[in-house]
Amino acid sequence: MATVSFNVNGEVRALKLDTRTTLLDALREHLHLTGTKKGCDHGQCGACTVMVGGKRINSCLTLAVMHEGDNVTTIEGLGTPDHMHPMQAAFVEHDGFQCGYCTPGQICSAVAVLDEIKAGIPSHVTGDLNVAPELTNAELRERMSGNICRCGAYSNIAEAITEVAGRPA
């Protein structure tokens, strides 16, 4: 067993855990923040995406004990049903889901993607590495490739993200 303390959605949480506990299981099973989903549990589907220190990661592929003092943001920390984050509202507006299982990961990833583009981080489809990347549909699709949607709501997801970015799809 080991102890760890980190900040989740603005609240300090101290936990006593088996060292094997992933950040995902700590969030879901110990803190009962079940918005973050377990899909493949191997970093392939993106359903478990959360932000740590403002950066999106697969919470299934990291141990909770490795996050002492970190700031974790989950879907619950982005917004609530009464006070939705603009990305959550846009997913509702554009039907950016069907079953909804991948949605929390899609939304966390999408919020981080807009920050990454704002920070000038290039992608595989960025034409010129020495010019700030633009938010095109091709950029969005490439950057969101770590989030799989089995229902195939991709075009609506892309529209929702584009709306939040303030550009036409």
Binding site: G46, R56, I57, L61, P122
Partner: peptide
């Protein structure tokens, strides 16, 4: 270019 061709955004952050 090689780094950006690999894995996903989430994995590259870690």
């Amino acid at each position: 270019r090689a780094l950006l061709a690999g894995a996903s955004g989430q994995l590259r952050n870690k």
